[in-house]
């Protein structure tokens, strides 16, 4: 199994110096090294945005598709070969803006993939416009009077739609984040992990300092039960002076693979297709 250093690619990293994404990249590599899987059996799917570049910097399979469309590709990769570990690296614009519909319906599918959403509360690649998670009143070049749309409460939404694993991490706490992603991958079903990730260039409000003062780990408190949906909902809605990180909600659910039965068969990709006999079904048309 690989060590962290084996996972490095020669691709030049295109993020700004000091970007929160470096933390996520390190945590991700750490997780993969701990995963006990050969990287050839891991497929990383991404869309477009700064988060979507991440798979290029890790030595495992990657499909870097279209803006907002990582989830349908990832779901289908898993359907085509359920023995693969499928991860998605996406951002708040990619996943909750452009690809919102896919997010909702893949929660319903409950296919066993792990979705890591980089939340920097701003658009990086298009230079500083509001994202679906930008705080109300935040001023940008495009929203000079301040943002007037309410931020999307993504974790509450995920719980409400029926996701079975809902978590939040922080890009500066590598060990905790790596643990969260590992738990997400080990969870059987659709796992969503929002990662607070300061944008050093465009977000002057939600900075490292801002987040570091606020985040606290919920799973250190043994009285918090992530299986309690009502408690989870309350925890997910907490945003202000204190911002919870950790596994917010976790419950066992039947997966797409189990419901469809594809998990009981060899991967579709390995089906022999050279001599498929359709004579019997042609009789239905006689």
């Amino acid at each position: 199994m690989p060590e962290v250093k084996d996972l490095k690619t020669n691709d030049e990293i295109a993020w700004c110096p000091g970007c929160g994404n470096f933390g996520i990249l390190s945590a991700m590599k750490k997780t993969i090294a701990r995963l006990d899987r050969n990287p050839k059996d891991i497929v990383f799917v991404s869309g477009i945005g700064q988060a979507a570049k991440l798979p290029h910097y890790i030595k495992c399979n990657c499909f870097n598709g279209l803006h907002g469309r990582a989830l349908p590709v990832a779901a289908a990769v898993k359907m085509a070969n359920h023995t693969l570990t499928v991860l998605v690296s996406t951002g708040d614009g990619d996943c909750y803006g452009e690809g919102g519909n896919h997010f909702i319906h893949n929660i319903r599918r409950n296919i066993d993939i792990t979705v890591v959403v980089h939340i920097n509360q701003v658009y990086g690649l298009t230079k500083g416009q509001a994202s679906p998670t930008t705080d109300l009143g935040y001023e940008t070049k495009l929203q000079p009077e301040g943002v007037i749309l309410e931020p999307l409460h993504s974790l509450e939404m995920a719980i409400a739609v029926g996701a079975g694993f809902v978590a939040r991490g922080y890009a500066l706490d590598l060990e905790h984040l790596s643990w969260l992603i590992l738990e997400g991958i080990r969870y059987k079903g659709f796992a969503v992990i929002d990662v607070l990730q300061p944008c050093v260039t465009f977000n002057k409000k939600n900075t490292f300092d801002w987040y570091s003062k606020r985040v606290y780990k919920i799973n250190d408190d043994s009285s918090y039960n992530p299986q309690d949906k009502i408690a989870a909902f309350q925890k997910a809605s907490e945003w202000g002076d204190r911002i919870p990180i950790g596994i917010v909600y976790k419950t066992e659910k039947e997966t797409y693979e189990e419901r469809s039965g594809i998990n009981k068969r060899p991967p579709l990709a390995e089906e022999q297709i050279e001599n498929i006999d359709i004579r019997e079904v042609l009789k239905e048309f006689m």
């Binding site: 590709v73 779901a75 359907m79 085509a80």
Partner: peptide, 8 residues
């Protein structure tokens, strides 16, 4: 497209 990438 995703399924095809995976070999199907």
């Amino acid at each position: 497209i995703g399924a095809s990438y995976a070999g199907v």
